[in-house]
Design a protein around this nucleic acid. Structure first.
Ligand code: MN
Ligand code: MN
Ligand code: ZN
Ligand code: ZN
Lengths: 135, 135
DNA sequence: TTTTCACTTTAGAATCATTATAAACTAAAA
DNA sequence: TTTTAGTTTATAATGATTCTAAAGTGAAAA
């Protein structure tokens, strides 16, 4: 992902490209593969980089802005912390409760043959499949 | 569910049948159909019954004991509160985010034709399907 | 019957992720 | 240069959950 795209992501989220926000955006989006993270893990990363300490509130605010703009999705995982995902396409997950690790499953790798009708007056928005793992 | 089964559920959870625990167990298990609840909803119910106020800590303790004994399951739902389920069989859920309501789907009503292999060294424990609803 | 004692209940404190607040800061525009 | 809207930040507040420690309960022992 190029720098111009980082700026585009920020602008489309209603965020001015400040130093802190650009750093967060680069960490999230300047990589080969998408990944899953928590606010805590993000914060730890920036704490280690002594060059740049970013306030926790700024991390929360920026992550939420990206999420609201559709640049991040939220994955529901057992436990207290909220997991975010830079993969915003329709996909599924393996979940390894031993390591608390999420692994993406491409939507095409899951075929559902039969599902029940939606309740009266409701429609199906999307289907999420979680495959829980054990050793 | 008969009173003897209530006592059985308590005993198999390592709990003596005290007045409070029996009340909780009867509310959870003495009904035709299984249901989903939060600790908050349980607590509200007992607050209304002026005959019996049960401390929040007792509700938490009892619910966790039932869960550990396999008499309750936990359903992962978006949002802060933990949802419990008196349906402990393998099944799936509709989730209506408008009303925060969970609706059971029988395991037989979902047929999955294709799933990916588990990652190296891991096995599949179970599969959970969430069908999110909209209006 | 009285005492003992392990188990319970309970109110309130502590924890921890998240959200809110409000003061200081920044930089573009006037 | 001044204004101003937007931003960062430290800290406080919130809310679900867990912990704690003191008081209560009741079955069995003495
Ligand atoms: Mn969760
Ligand atoms: Mn949840
Ligand atoms: Zn993912
Ligand atoms: Zn259910």
């Amino acid at each position: 992902m190029k720098k111009i795209d980082i700026l585009k992501k920020l602008r489309s989220s209603g965020l001015r490209p400040t130093k802190q926000r650009v750093e967060i955006a680069r960490f999230l989006f300047e990589r080969e593969k998408t990944f899953h993270f928590t606010v805590e893990s993000l914060n730890k990363f920036f704490e280690k980089k002594t060059t740049s300490k970013i306030a926790l509130a700024t991390i929360y605010n920026t992550v939420h802005a990206f999420k609201n703009a559709g640049h991040l999705s939220e994955v529901e995982v057992r436990g207290k912390k909220t997991y975010f995902d830079t993969n915003v396409s329709n996909h599924h997950h393996f979940y390894d409760s031993d390591t608390s690790e999420l692994i993406d499953i491409d939507a095409n790798d899951v075929i559902i043959q039969k599902i029940p009708k939606a309740p009266n007056g409701k429609k199906i928005k999307n289907i999420e499949v979680f495959i829980n793992l054990k050793n």
